[in-house]
Structures are given as C-alpha cells and as structure tokens.
Amino acid sequence: MLKLKLFKAEKRSLEGGTVAGRLTVLDIDKCVGCQLCMFACSRRFGEGGFAKSAIRVRSIGGVERGFTVIVCRACPDPPCMKVCVTNALSLRKAGGVTLNPSKCIGCGRCVDACPLKAVFWDNEANKPNICVHCGYCVNYCPYRVIGLREAR
C-alpha cells in the first residue's frame, strides 16, 4: 500500500534538524529500493542527484536478496568525532554529530572511522555528508521503511 504523508511545502524546513530525534530503520523488508530518501536528502539543499545525500540504499548482493539502508544511527559515543583532527564534528544532544564545515579540512578520517560506512562524501565540496536526523527523508518514504524516533 502506498501511503505518503507529505508536509505542505512551506511548512517543511530544516527546523527538524534541531528536534532531538533519531532516524531509524523500521522495517527493511518493506524497502523496494526506490531511493526516494536519497533524493530527498539532497533536495534539502534545493538540488537533484545524490551529491549531498547522507543516506544510501543499496541491495545486499543483488536486488533478489533485498536492500539495506545505510544511515547514521546517532551513536552516543561517535567514532567519527573522535578521529576528527580539527574538532569539526561535535556531539549532538541526541547522539550523532554536527559538522562545522568551516573547521573541516576534508581529510576523510571520519569516513574510515564509521563502522556502518554511514559517513558519505561530497566530492564537490570535499566534505563529509553526515545525517543530521532532520527526518526530511522520512516524509518521502512511501513504504514506512524509515522513521524518526525520539532520542534514547
């Protein structure tokens, strides 16, 4: 069943980013691999494509076996933050990190540190894309695969 509840465009903003929520995968078996979440993530910045996306959907070795959603789980003690040499990553209240792009030198150590491989790279800006748990993508998942939960 297709169920899609979109906010009215003018109400949607990045304000969700400050809500103490946490993006989570609710039921991966419902995922059809449409990647609408990935497109939504880049569309926050008013552009198409995936350059700014901090979420990725891929098959687990061929679509016949289903999909996996790779996204920051908002760990309370984030390894990406610990390896950041310029302190560009700071701990978010609800877990995970916030990036200060003016401090980031684009060394990419955070990418290697994340065991989930959930730190993505923006080749154009040479900076990481890390989920801010704003929940924008959740509104575009037609099958309720992902959701926003309150922080632990």
Partner: peptide, 18 residues
C-alpha cells in the same frame, strides 16, 4: 557518479516535486 544536478529555482522545484 555523484554529481549534483542543479535547478534554476530550488523553491519552485521542491513545490513541484511534491
């Protein structure tokens, strides 16, 4: 590839997308 795809009017783009 991971290129971004830019549009002329981001706000109108989001509204039309929805």
């Amino acid at each position: 590839g991971k290129h971004s795809v830019n549009v002329k009017n981001p706000q109108a783009y989001r509204i039309l997308y929805d």
